[in-house]
Amino acid sequence: MKIGVFDSGVGGLTVMAALLRHVPAADYVYLGDTARLPYGSKSQATIARYAVSSARFLAEEGAEFLVIACNTASALALDAIKDAVRVPVLGVIETGANAALAHSQTQDALVIATDATVQSHAYERACAERGLRALEKACPLLVPLVEEGWIEHPVTLEVLRIYLSELMDEAVAKNLNADTLVLGCTHYPLLRSQIQRAIPDLRVIDSAEATAMQVAAALGDRAGGGAGLRRFYATDSVDKFRRLGSRFLGEEIAGVELVDLGG
């Protein structure tokens, strides 16, 4: 089995790291569309065009199952991707909402994500479809702090404290009895322990881990049979992708191939 993983950058490597733990016998091909990020500042039509071209590339590389590890693409282009390729496709938003449903006792959930994901209200809709109420909070400073490597930096911890305090106040104001927090950005799993310490009474849902578990469940016996091969592609800045991506993957990335997907 060959699994394709797509993101606009390196954040999706947290999903791939979780996949390697839960589906270790598969082959993997990862694409970071670094030349065209950030997706969040683009129109839905443009995001769909970019995401579809990336998904088709992975399918042409032999991927038999696609994981859309980009929250923005999952929110705004998942249907277009599913229409464009003939392999199963799973997005991180649906998996995060499924995990929230499985773990919440109060049926009220909180979500932290990027501006673009929050503005799409994709988590709110996905949770509502499952009978959950969700309150979303944009945390735009967290991505650059994580990419800077400031995981335990006092600045990061203070920014987290402010965001989470505001979110909890908003939940109280809206009469939500939330017991679950969904990490709605693939960068945020690197901050999971810090987030859990800040809100010890809430169950933290790691969207990367939830996605990997659902891929493993969906594939079942078909998950094996690979040789454990891994290939990494980026559409720009392959050296930066390799250096930064190794931190997200949790292990050294030996090489990244440059690919041109056009405009």
Score class of each variant (00 low, 15 high):
Gly11Tyr: 02
Gln105Pro: 03
Ala99Ser: 12
Gly11Trp: 00
Ala227Leu: 15
Lys42Tyr: 05
Arg49Lys: 13
Lys137Glu: 14
Lys137Thr: 12
Gly250Pro: 08
Leu157Gln: 12
Ala138His: 05
Thr95Val: 08
Gly245Ser: 04
Val15Pro: 08
Pro24Tyr: 01
Ala69Gln: 07
Phe65Gln: 13
Val67Arg: 02
Gly131Gln: 06
Ala217Pro: 06
Ala63Met: 14
Val238Pro: 04
Ala113Val: 10
Leu219Val: 13
Tyr28Thr: 01
Glu136Leu: 03
Val259Leu: 11
Asp260Ser: 13
Gln194Lys: 14
Lys240Tyr: 05
Asp201Cys: 03
Ala26Glu: 04
Ser54Val: 03
Cys70Trp: 01
Thr235Arg: 04
Leu249His: 09
Trp150Thr: 04
Cys139Pro: 06
Phe232Gln: 05
Gly149Lys: 14
Gly224Leu: 14
Leu176Asn: 05
Gly228Met: 14
Thr117Leu: 04
Met1Arg: 00
Arg197Ser: 13
Leu58Trp: 02
Asp201Ser: 15
Thr235Lys: 02
Asp206Gly: 06
Asp221Arg: 15
Glu124Ser: 13
Leu31Asn: 02
Pro24Gln: 01
Ala55Val: 10
Arg197Gln: 14
Pro144Gly: 14
Arg36Met: 07
Ala26Tyr: 01
Ser237Pro: 00
Thr186Asn: 08
Pro200Tyr: 03
Asp239Lys: 11
Val256Glu: 03
Ser246Arg: 09
His153Asp: 15
Leu66Thr: 12
Arg192Pro: 01
Leu191Glu: 10
Leu37Lys: 08
Gly263Glu: 15
Arg133Ala: 08
Asp33Val: 06
Gly40Ser: 05
Leu261Met: 10
Gly225Gln: 13
Gly149Val: 07
Pro140Arg: 11
Ala77Leu: 10
Ala51Glu: 12
Tyr123Gln: 08
Ser8Lys: 08
Glu209Thr: 10
Leu202Trp: 09
Arg36Gln: 09
Thr117Ala: 09
Ala48Lys: 06
Ser120Ala: 15
Pro140Asp: 01
Arg21Lys: 15
Ala80Val: 02
His22Lys: 14
Ala80Arg: 03
Ala48Phe: 04
Ser120Leu: 07
Val155Cys: 11
Leu58Asn: 06
Tyr233Lys: 01
Gly245Thr: 06
Asp115Pro: 09
Thr186Leu: 06
Ile93Met: 02
Gln196Phe: 04
Val67Tyr: 09
Met213Asp: 13
Leu160Arg: 00
Val172Pro: 02
Leu135Pro: 05
Met1Leu: 13
Asp239Trp: 03
Gly62Glu: 00
Val118Tyr: 03
Arg49Phe: 08
Leu141Trp: 03
Val92Asn: 07
Leu20Trp: 08
Phe65Arg: 12
Ala113Pro: 09
Asp115Ser: 14
Val92Thr: 12
Leu183Arg: 00
Gly220Val: 12
Leu13Thr: 01
Ser53His: 13
Ala126Asn: 03
Gly11Asp: 02
His121Ile: 04
Leu19Ser: 04
Thr72Trp: 09
Lys2Val: 13
Thr34Asp: 07
Leu19Phe: 11
Leu258Asn: 05
Asn177Arg: 12
